[in-house]
């Protein structure tokens, strides 16, 4: 039987990607392969599997590999996924928002593997990757820092206006990029705030 292929790009919308994969699984399609924009599925029993999408760009290639191995050992299947669309070959990225190893992302390496798709065979028990509030805050912080850094980067670009004259169109573009990154940063900052509020009372 021929596998089903679907073309999608979700970028930083982790929950949307997760919902889509779970909808596919509910219809009886199990993920077997991902490329930059393509997802390949094979037939399975409807709702046999469920998926979570996790941001792992704050991990060095070695840390990410160890984490994957740990998950696979526990019986989950994992796929890496890109968060950006970028088609040149061979690249290096500096991720100043990362703590310690992992600041330098290369391709091949940790670049284009910013996300991890985790598959679990449904067993009636809840499936969440992060359950402890402290751990959840740490996870949201890695996302917030990534977006915040990018947002501030583009916003600083706007400040160049004070020193040299920049075409209006460029300014608008810089502003748009800043907003695109700062909105998710605010979203994750609020998520952190909510967990922290609960944490004052509950563990």
């Amino acid at each position: 039987m021929v596998n089903k292929k679907a073309f999608r790009y979700f970028g930083g919308f982790l929950k949307a990607q997760e919902r889509w994969l779970n909808r596919m699984a509910a219809q009886g399609f199990r993920l077997v392969r991902t490329t930059r924009m393509m997802y390949e599925f094979e037939r399975c029993a409807p709702s046999e599997y469920e998926y979570r999408v996790e941001f792992i760009a704050d991990k060095s290639p070695r840390q990410a590999q160890e984490y994957r191995r740990f998950l696979e050992e526990m019986g989950y299947r994992t796929f890496t996924k890109n968060i950006n669309l970028n088609y040149s070959i061979g690249k290096i990225r500096w991720r100043p928002w990362v703590k310690g190893a992992g600041q330098i992302a290369t391709y091949p390496g940790s670049y284009n593997k910013e996300l991890l798709i985790v598959e679990k065979r449904k067993d009636g028990k809840p499936f969440e990757l992060h359950t402890d509030p402290e751990d959840l805050v740490r996870y949201y912080q890695s996302l917030r820092n990534a977006y915040l850094f990018n947002g501030v980067f583009w916003a600083l670009g706007l400040l160049l206006n004070f020193f040299v004259s920049i075409p209006v169109a460029v300014s608008i573009l810089l502003g748009a990029f800043a907003v695109i990154f700062l909105v998710p940063a605010i979203f994750y900052a609020l998520a952190i705030h909510h967990v922290n509020e609960d944490r004052k009372i509950y563990e």
Partner: peptide, 9 residues
Amino acid sequence: SLGPGTLYG
């Protein structure tokens, strides 16, 4: 019920 990500951490 512990999430695998939390357990790993």
